[in-house]
Computed example of a mutant assay.
Amino acid sequence: MTATRVAVLGLGIMGAGMVRALCAAGHPVTVYNRTRAKAEALSEFGAVAADSPAKAVSGAEVVLLSLADEAAVEEVLFGQLVGCLAPEQAIVDTSTVSPEFAREAAERLAAQGLRRVEACVVGNPQMAAGGALRVFIAGELHSSEPAHEVLDTLSQSIVHLGSAGRASSLKLAFNLLLGVQTAGLAEAVLLAEASGIDRNVLLEALDTSGWRSPVLSFRSRFMRERSYRPAGFRSTLMHKDLLLAQQEAAAHDTALPVTECAADRFRAAIETGHGDDDAAVVVDA
């Protein structure tokens, strides 16, 4: 595989994991994060920390974004980067945003002669670091481009869904399931405990039964230990994605009552100070 020069902006647990995978594959990687310590911590894997977004993307063939929300994409991509980017640089955006925002972002960049590759990733931090994410992409992307080489490094599978916004729609559907299942697992634990059954008994029984799933097993580890940091997926982000799913459903006159109830559980966790904890904290919040 060709060594592609990559700039990564946004070094949360998923962004940092992707940097590790890119470095391990031999790609020269420059990184930027508002909290510089997060960028410097990746130097042991071969990444070079930049002092600003503009310096990070200078000379990069692929600019990979892994940002928390639409406000962050607006600030970093449109507020700081657009004037620094060239048409030959591929913008690969892995941030989870609404389909509407994804479409608008593609149109705004196209008006500047730039192209956004919508690349929604599914997986956990360990999968990101191991190059084993599942990637949904939308927008125009040719297999020979450096962007595709980068995505190949990060993924075990890539599904191209067509026009802008479609990858974001599918990602929200996945995160809807994650949120609902996590809230459901929390209520199963609460029911067992209310009946005098230790949560570890329930969680072990589930993990060796037909109800077992990688998603539930990942969340149940947090619940067993009653320790929710560092988070695999913060409660604030879970709540944000459930709201985005409801917003998208409303645009198509579709009701999501179960999702609404799950979103309320995560909202309550945030309001009691657990926004930065893993979403599994909903069992104890």
Results as ranks from 00 to 15, higher is better:
residue 183 A to P: 07
residue 87 P to H: 03
residue 57 V to Q: 02
residue 67 L to R: 06
residue 165 G to D: 05
residue 150 V to N: 09
residue 131 G to P: 03
residue 183 A to S: 14
residue 179 G to E: 11
residue 81 L to N: 01
residue 183 A to V: 06
residue 163 S to P: 02
residue 178 L to F: 06
residue 124 N to H: 12
residue 76 V to S: 05
residue 187 E to R: 01
residue 70 E to P: 04
residue 56 A to W: 08
residue 155 S to N: 08
residue 49 A to L: 05
residue 55 K to F: 01
residue 112 Q to R: 15
residue 188 A to P: 08
residue 57 V to E: 02
residue 163 S to C: 04
residue 73 V to W: 11
residue 149 E to W: 05
residue 70 E to G: 07
residue 115 R to L: 09
residue 72 A to Y: 07
residue 57 V to S: 01
residue 118 E to G: 05
residue 139 G to V: 02
residue 48 V to M: 12
residue 132 A to N: 13
residue 120 C to T: 09
residue 138 A to V: 06
residue 116 R to V: 07
residue 102 A to I: 08
residue 65 L to A: 13
residue 180 V to S: 09
residue 90 A to L: 04
residue 112 Q to L: 02
residue 78 F to E: 11
residue 153 T to E: 03
residue 173 A to Y: 08
residue 69 D to F: 10
residue 121 V to R: 00
residue 139 G to P: 03
residue 153 T to V: 06
residue 108 R to Q: 14
residue 139 G to H: 01
residue 152 D to L: 14
residue 89 Q to G: 11
residue 151 L to Y: 06
residue 123 G to R: 08
residue 66 S to A: 15
residue 157 S to F: 00
residue 134 R to E: 12
residue 174 F to S: 10
residue 120 C to H: 03
residue 172 L to K: 09
residue 157 S to V: 06
residue 121 V to H: 02
residue 67 L to D: 00
residue 105 A to Q: 10
residue 57 V to P: 01
residue 49 A to T: 07
residue 50 A to H: 01
residue 163 S to W: 01
residue 74 E to S: 15
residue 184 G to R: 07
residue 79 G to M: 08
residue 166 R to F: 00
residue 123 G to V: 09
residue 179 G to S: 11
residue 105 A to Y: 01
residue 145 E to Y: 03
residue 174 F to T: 11
residue 134 R to I: 07
residue 169 S to D: 03
residue 71 A to L: 11
residue 97 V to M: 12
residue 97 V to Q: 04
residue 152 D to H: 04
residue 145 E to L: 12
residue 141 L to Q: 08
residue 92 V to K: 00
residue 107 E to D: 15
residue 73 V to D: 12
residue 193 E to Y: 08
residue 80 Q to P: 06
residue 61 E to M: 04
residue 74 E to D: 15
residue 182 T to F: 00
residue 88 E to Q: 15
residue 165 G to R: 10
residue 128 A to D: 04
residue 107 E to A: 15
residue 111 A to P: 00
residue 159 V to H: 13
residue 163 S to E: 15
residue 189 V to I: 14
residue 73 V to T: 12
residue 86 A to L: 13
residue 183 A to D: 08
residue 48 V to G: 04
residue 173 A to I: 10
residue 187 E to I: 05
residue 177 L to I: 14
residue 175 N to V: 04
residue 190 L to H: 06
residue 69 D to C: 10
residue 132 A to E: 15
residue 94 T to W: 00
residue 48 V to C: 11
residue 49 A to Y: 09
residue 57 V to F: 03
residue 158 I to M: 01
residue 89 Q to Y: 07
residue 91 I to H: 07
residue 191 L to Y: 11
residue 171 K to P: 01
residue 72 A to Q: 14
residue 85 L to R: 02
residue 101 F to Q: 13
residue 58 S to K: 14
residue 137 I to E: 03
residue 187 E to W: 02
residue 67 L to M: 05
residue 89 Q to I: 07
residue 111 A to W: 06
residue 120 C to D: 11
residue 159 V to R: 10
residue 142 H to Y: 07
residue 113 G to D: 11
residue 103 R to C: 15
residue 193 E to F: 07
residue 127 M to D: 13
residue 159 V to A: 12
residue 96 T to F: 08
residue 139 G to T: 00
residue 192 A to E: 05
residue 183 A to I: 04
residue 133 L to S: 00
residue 131 G to L: 06
residue 101 F to P: 04
residue 97 V to T: 15
residue 164 A to E: 08
residue 184 G to A: 15
residue 173 A to G: 13
residue 175 N to G: 02
residue 162 G to T: 09
residue 143 S to D: 14
